[in-house]
Amino acid sequence: MVSRRQRQRQLAREKWERQQQARAVHRRKVRQRAIVIGAVVGVIAVIAGGYGVYLLVRDEPSEAATPTPSPSVSAPSVAPSTTPVAAPQPKAGECLYQAEAGADQKEVGLPPTKPTLAASYVASIVTSQGTITATLDPKVAPCSTNSFDFLATKNAFDKTACTELASAPAKASYLRCGSLTGTPTSGPGYIFAGENEKSASVPAGSLVMAGDANRGGSQFLVTYGKASTFDRPVTVFGKVTKGLDIVEKIAKGGVTPSTSPVAGVGSPKTAVVIQDVKITKK
């Protein structure tokens, strides 16, 4: 017959054995978990290492290493400090004017997204050298026409200098105006997409949106001389009907040498300041 003390010892031993078994099971689980985690970490390390090698040997250069192209002899000279962002493409019948911040921007608000366009627009650009009259084309360049009209009503062009002149040997001949703050990247606090774009055989007397590709703003070109060729598509939004001789006279005054790498491009020696722009609509 088992005594009470023996029975207690037996129960204590069985309890100890159960504890040992539980500890053994726990240790096995810990080891298994460590093995699984180690395998996962190893796979991740292999993948990461392989991707690092891919980055080192791939042919495609990184964005930071991609050189910014210099302006060519046929393009309006621009010296942006950062890579410009293209304006969004609008839907039919709409104009998307995307806000643009920066010290070189003179914010005047945003033109209407769904403009009510007139049948005809006549712009009188009054400068210190005389008045240039031009018709705007709302059919082929509705958003450019709407923006130019909006800026004129805001008196944004008043007291602004025409900052750039291009002549031979450049393939494009133009007078550049519309810099609201006097800087090459100046704008009205918004950008919009290009329209009716072409690059070759732009006739003399054309009003052309200036700036980077697909980034219209306040700056515009008045072409003169022979037909101009640009190295990228540009928006033609109007035509000079009177006063082109004023631009040609300014061009004969010559170009002040500048730091621009584009031969024949610099500031006009003959100072030109826009005093007022008036739009007549019918």
Rank of each mutant, 00 (worst) to 15 (best):
A118T: 02
A123S: 06
A123G: 00
V126R: 14
T127L: 13
T127G: 10
S128G: 13
T133L: 02
T133P: 01
A134I: 01
L136C: 11
D137K: 10
P138Y: 09
K139V: 15
K139R: 13
P142D: 10
C143N: 05
F148T: 08
D149P: 08
D149F: 03
F150H: 05
A152L: 09
T153S: 14
A156F: 12
F157S: 07
K159Y: 11
K159L: 09
A161H: 14
C162H: 00
C162V: 01
A166R: 03
S167Y: 08
A168Y: 04
P169M: 00
A170F: 02
S173T: 07
L175C: 07
L175P: 04
C177T: 07
C177R: 02
C177S: 11
G178T: 09
T181G: 03
G182T: 06
T183E: 13
G187H: 01
P188Y: 04
P188Q: 06
I191N: 08
F192E: 02
E195H: 01
N196L: 06
E197A: 08
E197Y: 00
E197W: 01
S201C: 04
G211A: 09
D212S: 15
A213E: 14
S218H: 07
F220C: 12
F220M: 12
L221W: 09
L221S: 08
V222E: 01
V222D: 03
T223V: 08
T223M: 07
Y224I: 04
Y224P: 11
Y224M: 08
G225I: 10
K226S: 15
A227Q: 10
T229E: 07
T229N: 15
D231F: 03
R232H: 12
R232D: 13
P233I: 13
V234N: 10
T235V: 12
G238K: 10
G238I: 07
G238Q: 06
G238Y: 06
V240R: 02
V240H: 03
T241K: 10
T241M: 04
G243L: 04
